[in-house]
Write a protein that binds this DNA or RNA. Structure first.
Length: 219
DNA sequence: AATGTCGACAACCGCTGTTTG
DNA sequence: ACAAACAGCGGTTGTCGACAT
């Protein structure tokens, strides 16, 4: 495409580096309420000084309700090894076979653990079956579900002040994990309800409940 | 106790494929 | 048919904590 591309955002005007808990909550809150139809305009609408790409990455890799965090199980590692053997570095394809895991996370695990572990074995793993994944019903990535709401050009003011440890709090969310809900077979339990519960929990934990009520009045 | 090194992981960068006007 | 805009992907880098010296 001959002319080259305009940069996706102005590097001088966007914040870079690690996300703060405040930014995370702002992003979560916005997506929960309005979805993410357009990543490029999302930061502006959400009042974030971030590139749309950065928001997307943060959401997909870290903030989605059903994203799994923590150590990979033996089974997951073996699945990665097997799929990498057949697919190569197609991280997103591999991720699609591991519910709740992201391509970025899988890539990191591969580069830091699995690659080294396999190196002494001369690369190839014995299993090389292509046709997959009895175990993988690919329940992954349901964030599109969130993507229904209409988005206006409004900039939503979400005042955030909490200093509490955001991730300690998220880690205690076990009972909300959609994975668990699904594994219990409660199919009719709607994703939206799950998301709302999850968001509500965050708000309560961070003392944002009042803010939310005010927001609703404003909409 | 201070400093250096290494590993893990979050985030960024740039490219590609797809969609849209 | 073409160009521009956009989302998504994979490679790479930066940062931070753990461990060794």
């Amino acid at each position: 495409m001959g002319k080259g591309r305009a940069p996706c955002c102005d590097k001088d005007k966007v914040k870079r580096g690690p996300w703060s808990a405040q930014e995370d909550l702002r992003l979560i809150t916005f997506i929960q309420k309005h979805g993410h139809q357009n990543w490029r305009s999302l930061p502006k609408q959400a009042g974030l000084l971030r590139c749309g790409k950065s928001c997307r990455l943060r959401w997909i890799n870290y903030l989605r309700p059903n994203v799994k965090r923590g150590n990979f199980s033996k089974e997951e590692e073996e699945t990665i090894i097997r799929l990498h053997d057949s697919l190569g570095n197609k991280w997103s394809k591999i991720a699609s076979h591991l519910a709740g895991r992201t391509d970025n996370e899988i890539k990191n695990v591969w580069n830091t653990h699995l690659k080294k572990r396999l190196a002494p074995k001369n690369g190839k793993t014995p299993q090389n079956d292509e046709s997959k994944e009895s175990s993988s019903s690919c329940s992954c990535v349901t964030s599109e579900e969130v993507n229904k709401a209409e988005i206006s050009d409004t900039v939503f003011d979400i005042p955030l002040e909490s200093d509490s440890d955001f991730w300690d709090m998220l880690d205690s969310l076990g009972s909300f994990k959609p994975d668990e809900i699904q594994s219990n077979g409660v199919e009719e339990y709607s994703k939206e309800t799950e998301n709302n519960k999850w968001l509500r929990y965050l708000e309560i934990e961070l003392g944002l409940e009042v803010t939310r009520n005010e927001d609703q009045h404003n909409l």
